[in-house]
């Protein structure tokens, strides 16, 4: 049984939207401008179904920030975005901060922080709404050819199920589409759904 009920999806979408709202608030403090971040929908895939098309990430190269988290259930949380667009946004963010541009080592770390803000906001929202505690590793950033990155993610984590959230991020004049993925085993998914059902029945 690996499909989600409408109400479960609704609850998950709301959890992640609250996370997105928090992330947007944190990001706007950094850039000193309005940040829009939304999670239009949540979908569940088998890892074999994942490719650039299902993720709507049509770019030759992807950047990915990854954190492994554990708690009542374990998952690899990953933020994927097209490298070029993400770099533009990071450049803007950096420029608004320190007035520098195009310094590769800055970028890596700044991308890590961008991913860290969004992933932590989603995890903390989940922790708040479902009343649980999650632990997380530090974020790792990597970048590469789209198919290589996707293949690597799927083979390394070896989790059969992937919860995919499409996200839209706008900072100043830039717009970025990305994906948040939670890679789960089926037992972890069942535990997550049990927490969501408990949350829904408590309303």
């Amino acid at each position: 049984m690996n499909s989600l009920s409408e109400l479960q999806l609704d609850a998950l979408t709301e959890i992640f939207n609250i996370g997105a709202g928090r992330a947007a608030s944190s990001l706007s403090e950094i850039v000193g401008d309005e940040v829009k971040l939304s999670v239009p929908c949540v979908q569940l895939y088998q890892s074999s179904e994942i490719n650039a098309d299902t993720l709507s990430l049509n770019s030759p190269r992807l950047g990915a920030v990854r954190q492994h988290f554990s708690g009542p259930f374990n998952a690899d949380a990953m933020l994927l975005f097209t490298e070029e667009r993400a770099m533009e946004i990071v450049h803007d963010m950096m420029a608004s901060q320190v007035g520098i541009e195009d310094v590769a080592e800055y970028e890596q770390e700044a991308m890590c922080e961008l991913g860290n803000i969004i992933l932590n906001a989603c995890l903390s929202s989940m922790a708040d709404m479902l009343d649980l505690t999650l632990n997380s590793s530090l974020p790792v950033y990597f970048v590469g050819a789209t198919d290589v990155v996707l293949r690597q993610i799927i083979s390394e984590t070896n989790q059969p199920l992937i919860l995919v959230l499409h996200i839209d991020l706008s900072i100043e004049k830039r717009h970025l589409q990305g994906c948040l993925m939670f890679l789960l085993s089926s037992s972890s998914l069942q535990k997550l759904l049990a927490h969501i059902d408990r949350f829904i029945s408590g309303i």
Binding site: N17, I18, G21, R22, S125, M129
Partner: peptide, 23 residues
């Protein structure tokens, strides 16, 4: 709204509405 950015709060206040933070 979960988005507590000042711009949203300011807009709510300008409309005469109360801003309340989600969740």
């Amino acid at each position: 709204s979960s988005n507590i950015q000042q711009s949203h709060q300011t807009r709510a206040a300008a409309l005469g509405a109360r801003f309340v933070a989600k969740p």
